[in-house]
């Protein structure tokens, strides 16, 4: 089921981009739609942070990912670039596992 998700998802996101260029402007100028479009990334990205940090399938678990997330937040406060934030989180989690301090 990965290929269908990749292909349909790609076509869908492309059509969304194209929509803004070709449909009448007033359709997208609805203030409620505009507000919602700005709020959706915040809600979905935050949910992804939460789920990816604590979930193992349908179970919740606290492990080295939480320490990685904390390290990522510190890196963000220090205005580190994207790749550094991701690396800091990975290295923190890997170090905790290598030393046996966390699963």
């Amino acid at each position: 089921m990965i290929w269908p998700a990749v292909i349909i998802g790609s076509i869908g996101t492309y059509l969304l981009k194209l929509t803004g260029y070709v449909i009448p402007a007033r359709v997208l100028e609805n203030p409620a739609l505009r507000r919602l479009t700005a709020l959706l990334p915040i809600a979905l990205l935050a949910a992804l942070v939460g789920v990816q940090t604590f979930s193992v399938g349908t179970a919740l678990q606290i492990d080295a990912r939480l320490a990685g997330l904390a390290a990522a937040i510190i890196a963000l406060i220090l205005k580190a670039p994207f790749l550094v934030v991701v690396l800091v989180a990975a290295i923190t989690a890997a170090a905790l596992r290598a030393t046996g301090l966390s699963v």
Partner: peptide, 15 residues
């Protein structure tokens, strides 16, 4: 290599 911890870090960096 802690790549599973890189996933939430990527999302919080986007957020």
């Amino acid at each position: 290599l802690g790549l599973d911890a890189a996933v939430p870090a990527g999302f919080i960096a986007l957020l």
